[in-house]
Structures are given as C-alpha cells and as structure tokens.
Design a protein around this nucleic acid. Sequence first.
DNA 1: AAAGCGGGGTT
DNA 2: AACCCAGCTTT
Length: 343
Amino acid sequence: MNYPYVTEFRQSLVEWFEKEKRDLPWRHTKDPYKIWVSEVMLQQTRVDTVIPYYNRFMESFPTLELLAEAPQEYLLKHWEGLGYYSRARNLQAGVREVLESYGGIVPDNRHEISKLKGIGPYTAGAILSIAYNKPEHAVDGNVMRVLSRVLNIHEDIALPKTKKIFEAAVEELIDPENASSFNQGLMELGALICSPTSPKCLLCPVREYCTAFNEGEPENLPIKSKKVKMKHISYDVFVCEDEDGRILMEQRPEEGLLANMWQFPMVEQEDDSLIKFAQHHELNVQAHQPILTFKHIFSHLTWHVNAYYMKSKTAEKGEWLTREQIELLPMPVPMLKIWQAIK
DNA sequence: AAAGCGGGGTT
DNA sequence: AACCCAGCTTT
C-alpha cells in the first residue's frame, strides 16, 4: 500500500471519533441483535431517517426472539415508509436462522454471520467490529469516499471489483485494538467532515495524513461512473367504497417491487381502464371523481399516478375492508398519500 | 458484472 | 435535475 502514516492515522481517527461521535440510539448498546437491526435500517438510508424507526422497532421487538415470532404484516407495518422492504423480511429470516442454527447467539465470525439472510460483506463487518470489536473491514459508500481521498485512489467505485481494493486497505489500516471505533470513525468522518461535496478539510482530524489533501484534489474524489435510464409508467388507482363504507384493497405479489405491501387497486393507465376494472371486479359503479394526480420517483423508475374515488354497490369479489382494518395494513408511500387525501 | 429494490435529503 | 445515502439479492 506504501502509506507511511498508518499509526498516526489510526490514533487520530479513533481519538477523534471517541471525542466527537454523535449520540445515536444504537450507540448505547453492544447487543449484536440491536447493532444488526440498526445496520440493516441504515443500508442506503440516512441516520436522521432511521432514528424514529429504530426506536419504535426496539419498543416492539426488543429481542431477537420477539422479532422471530412476529407476524410479517406487523413487522412490515414497522418498516412502512422506510423503503427496501425486503430488508425487513430478510432480517426476520436471519434472526430465525440464528435461533435455529446458533442457539440464539449471533455468530462472531465472518464465515458464519455471512450466511445469514440479508447480511452482506458490509453488514457482516459492521456487526463483527461494533458488537464484538473484531478487526474486520466494513466498507460502505462513506468508507470508499474517505479512503479514496486519504490514499488518493482513482479507481471507479461504481465497479464491484473496486470494493476489494478498499477492503484490503482497511485490513491494513484498521486498529486491531479498537476495531469498533476505527470503523465507526471512518463512517462518522465521511458523514460529518469528509462529505461528497465541499469536504471540511480544515476541520479534519487526519488531514495531515490525507494524500489527496496534501498532493491532490479531495473534492474530485472518489471517481464514480454513472449510467441510469429511468423508466416511466402511468397507473390509475381506484379507491372504491361500497354502501357499507368498506373499501376494496389488494395485496401486491410476494416477489418484486413493494412485495407483500397493500394498495388500492391499481392498473396501468388506459383509456378504458376504469371500465375494465369495474367489469373485472363485477362492480356497479354509480359515480367516480378524480382525487389527485402525482408523480412518485423510485431509484430506477417513475410512477405517474392518477387516483380516483368511486362508489359502488356491494360486490362479492375482492377484499373489502373497513377503514380501521386498512389503518393496520402496511402500504407504500404513494398509497399513504392517496389514503391521506381520502381521509 | 449488471439489474432490481424505496424514499427522502442536499446541492 | 442529479447525486447520495452505515447495501443486498438475484440473474
């Protein structure tokens, strides 16, 4: 690696972290289960977003056993609005594996913990280092940004193989006695100081040991290629209420986008989609009116939603639920938006 | 190696 | 509007 400041970098980073770290709910524990939950929630998700979800989750599922026993719908309700809902289902599958195969003890080595559903290379290293203080790499977007600057690495971080370079670097740099503070320090530095744009180098505890600060251009690292083609789809959504005040609902498939989440019936927009919808459900629609139109942007596609409200005579087909029942169902944000408009 | 998978904040 | 965020799974 040919980096001359290993000892100084370690010491400065760990000291800075232990002095300046934010007071976060999951930093009050070393329970591997709780660290696990926090790390899964934090995947592609900001700290400020996660905090209320984590607190609510720990009130309902304070132990691994209670999470293992929870109905999936109740679990998803706790994840509602957080996104990437497969994380929640994988987490539950993972804790069940721990109970069945490891006597309820989260494994303390990479080989075993990596077998658990939802635990990839990053989360494995995060749990091992934070809960067990094991000197294991935990390379996320923050770490790649920080180390690309400290070590002046110009490889494209969008390429999967590039992550191996950073994992190898962490293995050499990591403080074997303070793995927890070292790994968290790298991420905390990325969050507070070594930001994507306008890094605050003058406040940085390791700027003396930063190759890009000394010899390069920190603000132009890391190198990241990008190519995204956004897809667009238009949907009609029908909020259909019968004479008893019950509303027609449907559950999404168990695989794919928003798996197992509930929604008001939704069909791809066509000129006669309302007629087709009414025929399919054998509805006797008496009146309908537009509620709202909006755009919902996912990471890889955009929904253009037209929502309508309608009254129908009571029909046999489909799941007709009361407002109280609907409140208990996990729904994605676009549906919550429509539900708010209805109420 | 590439694609699918949420939602929201920042610039 | 583009980018980013304490990434993982499937193909």
